[in-house]
């Protein structure tokens, strides 16, 4: 069946089978940042935005995206690079495998929560697993990233 959607700001029309997941669909469309890290909807690596909301692309049917807007890391290069620099500065990335899904969810959190507390940040990001780090570097990077405007004003 045919679906029509907006993928990273561009109109996109394609044939999919009823059981194709959004994960495989966006990868077929060249969005290789989106990966499958588990079989149980637990790891968060496959995070994309469906109409601005972060979802697990492994747990959404491609047909459900028909008529909607899908955003992957490929469509957020500038924001990803900006936050990525904070991650690198804090030494938060080790193997980097978890980063695409993690960055998508941090950027979603930035849009949804105004001045989140530490607890709110941890809760928002609980569904993004990282096997290498202890999450401390990521948390430092997030705090610095969210406060970057104030940091700039101080300099």
């Amino acid at each position: 069946m045919q679906i029509e959607l907006t993928l990273n700001g561009r109109p996109c029309k394609a044939e999919v089978t009823p059981d194709t997941r959004l994960l495989e669909f966006v990868r077929q469309q060249g969005c290789a940042s989106v990966k499958c890290g588990c079989e149980t909807s637990n790891c968060g690596l496959c995070t994309v935005w469906l109409d601005e909301k972060p979802v697990l692309s492994c747990s959404v049917l491609a047909v459900r995206a028909n008529g909607h807007k899908v955003t992957t890391l490929e469509g957020l290069q500038a924001q990803a690079a900006e936050f990525g620099a904070f991650l690198a500065d804090e030494g938060a990335e080790q193997c980097g495998y978890c980063s695409p899904g993690f960055i998508m969810n941090v950027l979603a959190m930035e849009k949804e929560l105004k001045q989140p507390t530490e607890e709110e940040i941890q809760q928002y990001l609980a569904g993004n697993l990282c096997r290498c780090s202890g999450y401390q570097g990521q948390l430092r990077a997030i705090h610095r990233y969210l406060n970057r405007k104030q940091e700039e004003n101080h300099e």
Binding site: S41, N42, G44, T47, L50, K53, P54, V55, L56, S59, V60, N105, A108, M109, Q123, Y124, L125, A126, G127, N128
Partner: peptide, 12 residues
Amino acid sequence: LSPIVGVQFRNC
């Protein structure tokens, strides 16, 4: 509900 997996999961 907030302890169930993660925000992306609960959006689905």
